[in-house]
Simulated scan of single mutants.
Amino acid sequence: MAVAVSRDLSVQVLEDANTVKLTDRKKYLHDAKQRGQPKCIGVSQMMLGLMIISYSIPLHFIHFTEVVSLGVPWWSGLAFITAGVVAIILDKHFTMRTYQASLVVNVVSTVLSVIAVVIYSVDMDKHPEASCVKNLDGSCDMNFYATRLTRGLKSSLLLFTLAQTAVSATLSFHLYRLKYAFGLYSSFTEAAPATPRTLA
C-alpha cells in the first residue's frame, strides 16, 4: 500500500500497484468469460434438451425398449436444459457462486450425456431394424416400419446427445481453466480498496 504525507501532516492512501493489477486481472477474467459467451451456449443447450425430449415422445407409442424404460431422453434432456439455464444466469450475474454452479452442472451434464450415448448405442445394437416381411399387397409389415422409425429417432437422439456432450465438455473445460485465477484474484480485490482515501 502506498502512502503520501503532505506538509500539513494529512495522510493520503494512494492506489496500490498490486491492487490495480488485481483489478485488471479481474477485468481480464470477466472479458475471458464473455469470449466464451455463456448465454449463446446456454441457449443452444436448452434447445438441444428440448429437441431430445420432443424427439423421444414418439418412442413411447411405437416400440418400447430400454431407452424408454430407463427414461434416458427425459433425464438427459432435463440435465441439458438445466445446464443451459445456469449458463444464461452466469452470463447475467457473474459471481463465484453462479460460476461454481455452472461448472458443476456442466460437468454433470457431460457425464450424463456420455452415459446416454452408451445407452443409445447399446440399445440400437440390441434392437436392430426388422427385416421386411411382405404382405399380400406387396408392402412391408408394420413391424418393419416401426423398427425403422425408432432406429431413425434413436439415431437423431444419439446425434443430439453427442452434440450436447461436446458443448458441455467444452464449456466445462473453459470454466475450469478460469477457476483458479478467478478464485485467487477475487479474494484479493475484495480485501484491498480500489480507490485512494484520505485520512485526517
Rank of each mutant, 00 (worst) to 15 (best):
residue 1 M to E: 09
residue 1 M to L: 07
residue 1 M to I: 04
residue 1 M to Q: 06
residue 3 V to K: 11
residue 5 V to K: 13
residue 6 S to W: 00
residue 6 S to L: 03
residue 6 S to E: 07
residue 7 R to L: 11
residue 10 S to G: 00
residue 11 V to G: 02
residue 13 V to C: 05
residue 18 N to S: 09
residue 20 V to I: 12
residue 21 K to G: 03
residue 22 L to A: 15
residue 22 L to F: 12
residue 23 T to F: 01
residue 23 T to W: 03
residue 25 R to N: 12
residue 28 Y to V: 03
residue 28 Y to E: 13
residue 30 H to E: 15
residue 30 H to C: 07
residue 31 D to A: 12
residue 33 K to S: 11
residue 34 Q to I: 01
residue 35 R to N: 10
residue 35 R to K: 15
residue 37 Q to E: 15
residue 39 K to I: 12
residue 39 K to F: 11
residue 46 M to P: 02
residue 48 L to M: 13
residue 49 G to H: 09
residue 56 S to C: 05
residue 56 S to P: 03
residue 56 S to L: 03
residue 62 I to F: 07
residue 63 H to A: 07
residue 65 T to L: 02
residue 65 T to W: 00
residue 65 T to Q: 05
residue 67 V to D: 04
residue 71 G to I: 07
residue 71 G to Y: 05
residue 73 P to G: 03
residue 74 W to M: 15
residue 74 W to P: 00
residue 75 W to V: 07
residue 76 S to A: 05
residue 80 F to Q: 15
residue 80 F to K: 14
residue 80 F to R: 15
residue 82 T to H: 09
residue 82 T to K: 09
residue 84 G to A: 04
residue 86 V to N: 10
residue 87 A to V: 02
residue 92 K to I: 08
residue 93 H to W: 08
residue 94 F to K: 00
residue 94 F to Y: 06
residue 95 T to M: 02
residue 99 Y to K: 09
residue 100 Q to Y: 08
residue 102 S to R: 03
residue 103 L to D: 01
residue 105 V to Y: 07
residue 106 N to F: 04
residue 107 V to H: 12
residue 107 V to R: 14
residue 107 V to Q: 15
residue 108 V to G: 04
residue 119 I to M: 10
residue 123 D to K: 05
residue 125 D to S: 13
residue 126 K to C: 11
residue 127 H to C: 01
residue 130 A to I: 01
residue 131 S to Q: 09
residue 133 V to Y: 04
residue 133 V to A: 10
residue 137 D to R: 04
residue 138 G to A: 03
residue 141 D to M: 04
residue 141 D to N: 15
residue 143 N to M: 14
residue 143 N to T: 14
residue 147 T to N: 06
residue 147 T to Q: 10
residue 148 R to G: 12
residue 149 L to A: 14
residue 150 T to C: 13
residue 151 R to P: 00
residue 154 K to D: 14
residue 155 S to T: 14
residue 156 S to N: 14
residue 158 L to S: 08
residue 158 L to T: 06
residue 160 F to T: 06
residue 160 F to A: 11
residue 161 T to E: 07
residue 164 Q to G: 15
residue 170 T to M: 13
residue 170 T to A: 15
residue 174 H to Q: 15
residue 175 L to A: 05
residue 176 Y to T: 14
residue 178 L to G: 11
residue 180 Y to S: 14
residue 180 Y to G: 11
residue 181 A to V: 09
residue 181 A to Q: 13
residue 181 A to N: 08
residue 183 G to T: 11
residue 185 Y to K: 09
residue 186 S to P: 00
residue 187 S to A: 09
residue 190 E to G: 02
residue 191 A to G: 01
residue 193 P to N: 12
residue 193 P to I: 04
residue 195 T to H: 09
residue 200 A to R: 10
